[in-house]
Amino acid sequence: MTAMAKEKLIFNLVRGVTYFVVIVVGYLLFDIFIKGIPTISWSFLTELPRRSGAEGGIYPAIVGTIYLVSGAIIFALPLGMASAIYLSEYASQGRLNRTIRLAIITLAGVPSIVFGLFGLGLFVLFFGFGASILAGSLTLAFMILPTIIVSSEEALQAVPMGLREASLALGATKWQTVYTNVLPYALPGMFTGSILGIGRAAGETAPILLTVAAFFLPRLPKSIFDQVMALPYHLYVLATQHPDTEKVLPMQYGTALVLIVIVVFFNLTAIILRNHYRKKIQW
């Protein structure tokens, strides 16, 4: 075999392996889309579930997920953005900086079920919030914090040094410089990070399993101390805990489709926004 033929053969092999992953994922999305679509209707999205999820809709699960994700973002976004500003603009190469970075890496690697245990120990039991929206949101907030910090810092780092130097040279203080010359250019990128965080929080099941989720609760929550249903947990329950899982298969596919549409929507938005700003801002 000539060297060129060998190169071509192996490149095609590598291409095949890569596209095999694409095909598997494509099939997964296609399968859920095709089998989920017949279930989707206005009543499926806006009605309360009946007969432990075998009939009716998934409205409380959608609302529950929205509450949990909003709560998580309210806690995690300010904290994450402030952390990123410190790390990118203020921190010197000292011990504190190194420890913070180690902590962020550690947090990013903590398994989601361990976050659940932690939320159970701290929020549900120690603070006495009980299984509630508040406990679940806080747990999810801690989980998505590293995502928000890392992408916010990346956005801040992308702002050229010259903008900071010019501002400082004109006598502005550090914060004036950051506030007027760095943040305005970094904000779109920082929000991209939060959108990725939203996508992650919406799809997580393990942490809310232990801190908030209700098996079957066909009503809407009244306060942040209430339990709620949530889409990923609802899908888990329908698929594995329901007495007649075969019969509720259409409901499972419908729930999976709604969940995947929400998550993919947020992820795509983040990707498109990021690419847009990377292209648009030419320094």
Partner: peptide, 24 residues
């Protein structure tokens, strides 16, 4: 095309992957 696709895969919730594993 491939890079965003990989990012979408990274974002698919594990419960959906588990569901796909269970039924397919």
């Amino acid at each position: 095309f491939l890079k965003p696709f990989i990012e979408i895969l990274a974002g698919i919730p594990s419960v959906v992957i588990g569901f796909f594993g269970l039924v397919v």
